[in-house]
Nucleic acid binder design. Structure first.
Lengths: 354, 354
DNA sequence: GATCCAGTCTGTATCGATACAGAGACTAGC
DNA sequence: GCTAGTCTCTGTATCGATACAGACTGGATC
């Protein structure tokens, strides 16, 4: 059995409080006594105050939770998520706070339980697909949180860091529209829950539940509306899951149809890279010339020459954690919009004459 | 104030124990009473048992710590570390366990404190440069841990997952030696603590403190010893930090010396990629033909055509977490050596005739 | 010499839950 | 009808610390 604070107190012949102070409030006792206590602790093999007991009594834990709706192991394969985590990590480091990554079981009941059981002082909620239940639990626990996806019903006091998804998406779509593309496919992850991979008909963009996806698709639609293309004239393609292979699989069939798209606008770089994979997989003589755009500007995008929209990933994570760790006094300052920029590379070009 | 378990008990008119059972041991009370309790909890806004209090009483936390000596934010920039984390995450997911990432302050005293204060049930220690103090603290706390770097003084009961660093390094060096290279530079991160960047003279490879680095350098030396090259005839180059720019900076000068190396063997892919960066930065007409090898086979290595040694990163993380989460009954099974493979790509070739 | 104060240390209450032994009620079995 | 056994539920002890109010010293102040 590991010795407790009491054991050290007994060994030195002082009260428990004094030993506690030796660790947590050195100014509350003489230096010599403190040394005597720490020596005794060393000899007894006392490893310092039990973190759990300390947290219980103090009322805070010293760590923040990071919540992904997706599988935790998936999060590490998403380059944007990794940069986000790096940002959170940098802020946590500065504050001497730990980061708790909480895996969420697939069933919502279990997932709620997981969020209820996380020993943290607050949460960074990374763009949870269907985040409402998670925010409910966090609110019920009375914990602060910062979310990275704009939500329609966000309370005025809710902290947020993100981008203007719609405007950003519009900028890249306007670029594509400006190149003359009119047969266009929009590729997005989980457009509707449980929808199959491939082309999908959705009455209006407002049917899309996930706010980030909805925002980006709206921006795409905006740009094409300006050149006279209706929502119904755009081909919406669903991908179940934000991964290259999934995107490749979902898009592959489209290029063999009668009037294939001349441009594919993807809701993320990962999806766009999957489209490029699908194109590269075709024999050279049967490889259509298609403009492809992504979103995020992850490190891989530059190497692939992908036209995309840059958003500052690490910054997003860093600010999310900072909004959580020292909240601004001014509620308005708790709502941060980061800048984005259109990055034009080789993956987009004018419509080929056929 | 958030309601407590007691508040719910009072509201329903049952004992605290019964409410606790409603959450943690549903089989201990009738279904109807359980529903009544959960309803009341909902109405009162009780968020479920306080995780910290529960951990204190139960004696375990339900999360494992991951320790990096380096900066936490750095860990996310190292592709090998990220794959490792993904593996840990996958295992954690399966076990319903959270992962706590603990940033370590630069000063050892503070860092010890951080490890002492982490509320976890055990640690995965990721190849900590100077890990002894960390392992001391963990042992003192009586927590289990799994390390990923072979240590000379490892107790027989200590769990470990790794590779045969020396043999793996030897395989890639033998490949380079077989191509005829005799003017060879070995590039490694933090060969000696606080050593400057650039060429460094070290009497023998056994002077190198970090076991992983020492193992790899030994393997390199082994292969060249077989073709008659002494340790002293190899150029050892120190890089302070495992990053591409640091490697590029450390190696750059070497190519302008009288008899520049025809091959550079790096202790990691990241360093090797830095070497390639340094070469690419030179004007084409002044770009020496140098064979470069890495170590790890991170995703970027394939794209760069880097010859390297593959080790299963995700597997390493997964197994580390699993050894921690359900320890094998047999102590020998707690010591896992993963396979490695030489991956020859375009970055190595025969010695150019000059 | 009384008062005040700063510096040390102690004692009790408390953080919010779970473990465990056991009390009642009720059904079976013989 | 009595013992056993199963279901439910209760009560007390406990997990390992910190907060806070107060007690005791020994100068400094006037």
């Amino acid at each position: 059995m590991k010795p407790t604070l009491q054991a050290v107190a007994d060994a030195v012949g002082v009260s428990r409080s004094t030993v506690s102070n030796a660790y947590s409030r050195p100014d509350q006792l003489s230096a010599t006594l403190r040394e005597r206590i720490l020596d005794a602790a060393r000899q007894l093999g006392y490893p310092g105050p039990n973190p759990t007991a300390r947290s219980l009594r103090r009322g805070f834990v010293g760590s923040i939770g990071v919540l992904f709706t997706s599988q935790l192991s998936y999060a590490f394969t998403d380059p944007f998520a990794v940069r986000f985590l790096a940002g959170v990590g940098a802020a946590a480091e500065r504050h001497g706070t730990s980061m708790l990554l909480v895996p969420l079981p697939p069933a919502v009941t279990d997932a709620r339980r997981a969020v209820e059981n996380a020993a943290v002082d607050g949460f960074c909620v990374y763009c949870v697909a269907d985040e409402e239940w998670a925010l409910d639990v966090i609110r019920q626990r009375g914990l602060p949180f910062v979310s990275t996806a704009a939500r329609d019903d966000a309370g005025a006091d809710e902290r947020f860091v993100g981008i203007d998804e719609r405007a950003a998406a519009r900028s890249v779509a306007a670029h594509v529209a400006g190149l003359g593309h009119r047969r266009v496919a929009l590729l997005a992850d989980s457009v509707l829950p449980d929808a199959p991979a491939g082309p999908l008909t959705v009455a209006g963009v407002d049917q899309v539940p996930h706010p980030t996806t909805r925002g980006r698709l709206s921006g795409f639609a905006d740009a094409f509306a300006e050149v006279g293309l209706d929502w119904a004239e755009l081909t919406l393609v669903n991908v179940p899951g934000n991964s290259r292979p999934a995107a490749a699989a979902a898009i592959a069939g489209l290029f063999d149809q009668p009037a294939p798209p001349t441009a594919v606008l993807a809701g993320s770089d990962v999806l766009a890279l999957g489209v490029l994979d699908a194109l590269a997989a075709r024999p050279a003589h049967d490889r259509p010339s298609v403009s492809v755009t992504g979103f995020d500007d992850v490190p891989e995008a530059a190497a692939a020459g992908l036209t995309t929209v840059r958003q500052p990933a690490e910054e997003k994570g860093r600010i999310a954690a900072e909004l959580l760790l020292d909240p601004p006094a001014d509620a308005a300052a708790g709502h941060v919009l980061l800048p984005t920029a259109l990055v034009v590379r080789g993956s987009t070009g004018p419509v080929p004459r056929s």
